[in-house]
């Protein structure tokens, strides 16, 4: 390859700006009149495991495509590892591993041959170490035995694993993984989760899009939530969860009586025939418990629940099941 040397510029390992692995400024993408991504200001701290959440059609994948320079922003800016995309893609991308919108490989080649081809297609893929790196990557995702099978014979979970192997062929500073556990069995999901933890422990920043909230809750340190192209919230997982008020739940047979006590304290209670729950809104749960008992409510259980990520997510994005657009 002698023709286009400029795109193969060797990457100096200069530190990137402000400790952010990814930073977007007023990032906007319009298709026609619709702003699929609308003035997004995303800040992914270096070293974090960052969960990128949002209902289907909220603009997650479009954002990821802009991060990687596959599509150009209509407005705003993307900084990937301190470099403006897509202009300086040749400097940033060799240090980024990505899985975008599912794996894609050549069906007529084996898993190993596919990895060989993708590794040979870009810079920093030393041919001398290629074999070893491929074997290592296959081993990390549990595909060693299936490496010589043709890709078209792979199940969805195996394809996903090969996609991950491809992202792990070289050491990366940042991994951008779009729904990495899609189609995987529970064991696979768990292995991937452990893999992500391992990578993060090595100092790799992991940007993870998923709609499996339990997944995100288990591995992520930071979270951003998108809906209808807008960023609803971002920050550390703990901060996001503590923003939502805790809920007290009392299990009782005297539902009416309990509702009355809760209502008298100015809280709006919800109930079924065995329990009453209400957002605490700053009131001390121990006082409420005492009041309930003093009012003669027969309490069989009392609990204060931190909202799960799912509750936070739903409270941010709304209950509706229909795809927003």
């Amino acid at each position: 390859m002698t023709t286009i040397e400029a795109e193969r510029a060797v990457v100096p390992s200069e530190p990137f700006g402000g400790g952010s692995a990814i930073r977007t400024t007023e990032l906007t993408k319009r298709f026609g009149d619709v702003a699929v991504v609308d003035r997004l200001n995303l800040e992914v701290p270096a070293g974090s495991v960052f969960g990128f959440l949002g209902p289907n059609g909220s603009g997650k994948t479009t954002t990821i495509r802009m991060l990687l320079g596959l599509i150009a922003p209509s407005e705003g800016e993307v900084q990937l590892l301190g470099r403006t995309m897509p202009g300086r893609a040749a400097e940033a991308l060799p240090r980024v591993g990505a899985l975008v919108e599912g794996p894609a490989f050549y069906p007529w080649l084996s898993g190993r041959q596919n990895l060989e081809r993708i590794d040979a297609a870009g810079p920093e893929g030393d041919a001398a170490t290629r074999r070893t790196r491929i074997e290592l990557a296959l081993e990390r995702v549990g595909l060693t035995a299936a490496g010589k099978k043709k890709y078209k014979a792979y199940s969805l979970g195996m394809r996903q694993r090969l996609g991950l192997a491809s992202a792990l062929l070289r050491r990366r500073e940042l991994l951008i993984l779009d729904e990495p556990t899609n189609g995987m069995d529970p064991q696979g999901t768990r292995e991937i989760r452990n893999l992500i933890r391992e990578l993060a422990a090595d100092g790799t920043t992991v940007f993870l899009s998923s709609h499996l909230l339990a997944e995100i809750e288990q591995v992520c340190t930071h979270v951003a939530v998108m809906s209808l192209g807008r960023l609803l919230s971002q920050g550390s997982l703990a901060a996001l969860q503590s923003d939502a008020t805790p809920v007290m739940r009392v299990d009782t047979v005297d539902v009416e009586l309990a509702l009355g006590v809760v209502g008298a304290r100015g809280l709006s209670g919800r109930h079924d025939d065995r329990s009453v729950s209400a957002e605490l809104g700053g009131q001390a749960p121990e006082d409420l418990c005492r009041l309930l008992v003093e009012a003669g409510v027969r309490v069989t259980g009392f609990a204060v629940e931190r909202p799960s990520l799912e509750d936070v997510f739903v409270s941010l994005t709304g209950e509706g099941f229909d795809v927003a657009r």
């Binding site: 990687l68 320079g69 980024v96 975008v100 919108e101 599912g102 894609a104 993708i118 297609a121």
Partner: peptide, 11 residues
């Protein structure tokens, strides 16, 4: 095949 995006991201 979708491999275009991976070739471009490679980069």
């Amino acid at each position: 095949l979708g491999t275009l995006r991976y070739l471009l991201v490679r980069p």
